[in-house]
Nucleic acid binder design. Sequence first.
DNA 1: CCAAAAATAGACAGATCTGTATACTTTAAG
DNA 2: CTTAAAGTATACAGATCTGTCTATTTTTGG
Lengths: 190, 190
Amino acid sequence: MSRRRDQLVTTALRLFSQNGFRATGIDLILREAGVAKKTLYNHFGSKEALVVAVLDKRHADFMATTRMTVARLAPRQRGDPRMRRPLAFFDGLDAWFTSGSFHGCLFINASAEYARSDCPIHQVCVSHKVRLLDTLESLLSEMPHANVRDMAQAVGLLADGAIVRAHTAGELHAARSAKRAVRRLLESYL
Amino acid sequence: MSRRRDQLVTTALRLFSQNGFRATGIDLILREAGVAKKTLYNHFGSKEALVVAVLDKRHADFMATTRMTVARLAPRQRGDPRMRRPLAFFDGLDAWFTSGSFHGCLFINASAEYARSDCPIHQVCVSHKVRLLDTLESLLSEMPHANVRDMAQAVGLLADGAIVRAHTAGELHAARSAKRAVRRLLESYL
DNA sequence: CCAAAAATAGACAGATCTGTATACTTTAAG
DNA sequence: CTTAAAGTATACAGATCTGTCTATTTTTGG
């Protein structure tokens, strides 16, 4: 809808990712976005609302990227065809980690800064993680369906673990470790 | 050594865990610890140094708790005896998550708030995660040693993933999901 | 017991942050 | 073209935060 609104959300997404939420002041976002303060407070009533909008955008972007990446990389996976899509998901993580613009999972970071579970920001993070698990289940839908739930849990844990390791410990190859574990784990279900 | 210093670190550890680092002001720490501001700046030259001291204490506490918990819970694990200690580690995570005083991994949270990799705080987090991997390797030392490195990587990812899920998504049973995955994964190495 | 070290209370400086208000300018739709 | 909506620039209020300084009191080691 609004071009100014998009500029604000896009700029805030970048700055929040790079420097954290509380460490990023409104004034910096405004300066880098080239937007006046009043415009921000017309679109969003508060910084908290802007954070929520940023997380919503990040969720949409992540889901779209995931869909595209899995579709592109699944055909070139080796091994049982039923494992191709979940394995491709980890190639997507690998590309993300090594892209040079990786700053960890924005939802994990937001949960760390806004820890209280009754905070709207925290609830958006819960929602993202739940929907991500649904996505993983759908990627696993070709596997023996009796264990899809268990597999999705395990794969989700390995994905979150890889994101955390890559960010906190700087191990940018974490996605490849995770992919090896996923392959071994899924093979045990075939 | 100093009683005041310990009060400051202990109080700051609690407040940083509950509310985050940047959201916790010096004045609150001082009030709750019952210590004067000058005393803090005599022991630590800055808030950043206090954060580092808190993370050092947390690392020591975590390692001590892990050692004790694994020693106590390993004997009651079912399955191959060589898997007992790594499995017991996840029972320790489960007890932590459901203890009522779980606020995520302090090092993951610190990395989220102090994102720049040249920041001393971030480096303490890297160091913690590296030492944790060493610990996991030692817990896996009874497993076939050719694959200890790979197994420790996978188990570490599942542990970090469980911590993140439990905190960000509020899934306090995440440690049990992770433990099931670890059991299955380690069995594939026997 | 006494002197040096450590701690206290509290004011204060200087910076920063969120959010509001004002006065002016641009944009866009009928 | 005109008018109402939206945006700009900027000052400002009020709160908060880190860190310093002073003057006083408590603790502690020899």
